[in-house]
Design a protein around this nucleic acid. Structure first.
Lengths: 340, 340
DNA sequence: TATCGTAATGCAATCGTTTGCATTTTTTAT
DNA sequence: ATAAAAAATGCAAACGATTGCATTACGATA
């Protein structure tokens, strides 16, 4: 309701609007006396700067954009998302930034949303989640020369800001964990195949198998739609083959939940019949039955650092290393207990 | 990079800036000829309106605020949150609104964040999640006469916009389900006690017990911090008493996960030894082992309607019924299978 | 052809800030 | 006491749009 402006404050304090403005921005050459006077007037009137007006002239909005991938349901329903967002907001909060979200139903809308935010000068920088192999949004932003950061990595440009895990290594490590447990037939459940993270994790898995002299069995690499009809069919096919896998590397904790459930329904027990390992270490993976062996990728931290990275860039800091890597670590739990 | 304004377009199209503005807003009395000319110029220059400037004069930002409760970790790590946010964004997207988020570490920061958004005229309306019994933010917004909607309900003001479940009824229903299964000793695991939703669900639980002539045993009502040390202690105390509960109503699926896990660790099996029912029906509750009986509260829908409700209010529509109720339904699964 | 009515456009003020430069005030040195 | 330097403040022009009112253009009517 109250629309008290800088002028009202100026009038009450008996100074010019410019002076009030300078008090707000803590300009060096304002006498302590007037500073006090103005502050009191602001207080008395309950003044708050109009952020729209501020950013119109200062050209900076203290806002970061975040566009939900259009294939968002999957990523999004995932507790991973809340956790990473929490990390983002935590750092943003420290630096007094807010985060502007918008969603999209398809690639076209996705581009539109980005364009609207960027060209509408609504945000200072943008955070991109779950980048794809050839990501049109990345291209667009490069073209606009607009500051952005990837949560993940770009396969095509190595100078873009990004915060990521070493997913190849992570997958390699967790697969090796299974191999060390004596598994020789190891399947893989992949995420959406155009996501860089899926590609990397698949690569690490293959690498570990090859190094151990184990064959990569293409039929044992299945899509994450295991929970839905068709892929579920694929799963039973695999499990009913003469020599089924004794373990699966799953791309994501939530999918692992589903897989454990489906296996159980089909009469296979984890880990007695099949071992399961996955990625992310969402809170619930510990509460699963059995608890899931997983790769902790530092979700919260990923979000936190992503925003930190971007804000540093925005404040003109020299970025030593554009590609940040958050270390991962294996969390061994019951779902991959040693075979006897 | 390109900062092409309305003037540039005007120049190229050979008209005045006002005309361009009218073309943008699709003003009725602009000749088709100039409309076309201007559109072409906009296209040619890649013009996009500066949203800050627009909202400075039009006083509307096409943005909704969402402040994360400071006790956010709990709510927030919960998949509930992503799901509800997805619903919010879906409707916002339809109406071309964006959502501005900011987080807070304590009640003070929370108020600050709201104030900054509201008085900074950054948003047109605000969404409040998980309202408390006596919620200072609600008071503040009423005082400012600023449009807002509650995801939940206010215990003190019945004219405020809200979207909620009938949580009393929901708890009553799910408790009755247990009673029908033959349970006579039923415990309750509560959420944060100052949350309205916790209060309502507890009330429904008690009501069902009383109506069935079953005693309300205060020791069997425990906090959701079951997973942490002290409350876990409480849990083992209860379960080791001579006549322990044979079932628990749990306030939230995630907590149910934890509880099942803890019970399991203590040697109690679900549902053989103890039945568990809970609320929300997050995706994972179906994938739990055993799958959890829960109350589907229509999470996505809650988010969707919350934003719809608010936007309707903002566009001046007459709101027939300020308090919307989203229906719930029981999802019976293995965790509450009949005792034999 | 003169007049009028309407449709289409332009002018200029405004939204609430910031900021370079000019101006005034204060301080310091002589 | 006066000049010069330094410090504090004010003026006015941006920023990029919108919009009420005035103005122009253009058929239509008499």
């Amino acid at each position: 309701m109250s629309s008290v402006t800088i002028k009202d404050v100026a009038r009450l304090a008996g100074v010019s609007p410019s002076t009030v403005s300078r008090v707000i921005s803590n300009h060096p050459k304002i006498s302590p006396a007037t500073k006090k006077k103005v502050r009191e007037a602001m207080e008395a009137l309950g003044y708050h700067p109009n952020i729209m007006a501020q950013s119109l002239v200062s050209k900076n909005t203290q806002t970061l954009g975040l566009v939900l991938p259009h294939s968002a349901e999957k990523i999004f329903v995932n507790p991973f998302f809340s956790e990473v967002l929490r990390g983002m907001l935590a750092y943003a909060n420290i630096k007094q930034y807010d985060i502007l979200m918008s969603s999209a139903n398809n690639p076209k809308e996705e581009i539109e949303a980005v364009t609207r935010m960027v060209l509408g000068r609504r945000i200072d920088g943008i955070i991109l989640m779950a980048p794809r192999q050839k990501d049109p949004i990345v291209e667009k932003l490069l073209e606009y020369q607009f500051p952005f950061v990837l949560l993940g990595r770009s396969m095509e440009h190595d100078h873009v800001l990004s915060v990521n895990n070493d997913n190849i290594k992570a997958a390699y490590d967790i697969t090796n964990h299974l191999i060390k447990q004596g598994h020789k037939r190891i399947g893989f459940v992949s995420g959406p195949p155009d996501l860089v993270v899926s590609i990397d994790r698949l690569e690490g898995y293959k690498k570990a198998l090859l190094e151990a002299g184990l064959p990569v069995h293409p039929d044992w690499i299945i899509g994450e739609d295991v929970l839905q009809g068709n892929a579920f069919h694929a799963l039973t096919m695999i499990m009913n083959s003469p020599e089924p896998p004794t373990a699966f590397v799953v791309t994501d904790d939530v999918v692992a939940f589903g897989l454990i459930r489906e296996l159980y329904a089909a009469g296979f027990h984890v880990p007695q019949d099949v071992s399961i390992v996955s990625f992310n270490n969402i809170v619930l993976s510990e509460l699963s039955n059995p608890p899931i062996t997983t790769v902790d990728i530092g979700i919260y931290h990923l979000g936190y650092l992503t925003v930190q990275h971007l804000i540093r860039k925005l404040s003109g800091e020299e970025i030593e290393k554009p590609q940040m890597i958050v270390p991962h670590r294996l969390i061994i739990r019951e779902s991959s207990m040693k075979l006897q």
